[in-house]
């Protein structure tokens, strides 16, 4: 087959929840725009070099995240970060780094839902056992946790807005649980 024919193939990404959304008076739920994602693993001493390469300061303690421009770095564990970028692949930035680390592309493993509105925290608390008050889970807080019967990564992007990162095959469950909770709130 001519290479031209291959080029003509549709390489746009298909979101597992394409076209699905929920809009209620107090909460809206929608798939997040497509993004690059990287699971970054490294010891503490590599953090400065990695931060420099990524152009974002990797948070060093639990539940913290940093967002600058299109890029977010979420602390998930003592040697683990989730890097999300809506425009540039963080793997490209990390490929030049010499310090010991592991960077694995998980852009397609995860997908995300954006939950917004005055009752967003209540709706997520339908399945999440963590305290999501602003005191315990302020803007910028993030955590891997439980949502009903699945695992998610939660990031509070604003007082009444959350990003729910979820493995793609669990996204239908996450969407249905959140929209069911929202419609019965």
């Amino acid at each position: 087959m001519a290479k031209a024919a291959i080029k003509a193939m549709d390489a746009t990404r298909v979101h597992p929840l394409a076209g699905q959304s929920f809009g209620g008076p107090n909460v809206s739920i929608a798939p997040a725009p497509e993004a690059y994602r990287c699971s970054l693993r490294a010891d503490a001493r590599a953090v400065p070099s990695l931060s420099k390469a990524l152009g974002i300061k990797l948070p060093r303690s639990a539940k913290q995240s940093i967002t600058a421009a299109d890029r977010s770095a979420l602390w998930l564990g003592p040697d683990e970060w989730l890097i999300i970028d809506t425009h540039v692949d963080p793997l490209d930035d990390l490929s030049k780094v010499r310090v010991l680390h592991s960077a694995v592309d998980i852009s397609h493993r995860n997908t995300a839902l954006l939950v917004k509105g005055p009752r967003a925290a209540d709706v997520i608390n339908a399945g999440c056992p963590q305290d999501l008050s602003l005191a315990a889970f302020p803007v910028g807080a993030c955590s891997r946790t439980i949502l009903g019967k699945i695992e998610v990564v939660l990031l509070r992007t604003d007082v009444d807005a959350f990003r729910v990162e979820v493995w793609r095959s669990f996204s239908a469950y996450a969407f249905e649980l959140l929209s069911t909770a929202a419609s019965h709130n």
């Binding site: 998930l76 564990g77 003592p78 955590s143 891997r144 946790t145 695992e151």
Partner: peptide
Amino acid sequence: RHTHGCAR
């Protein structure tokens, strides 16, 4: 194990 948290 903090399986669904920091995984440690």
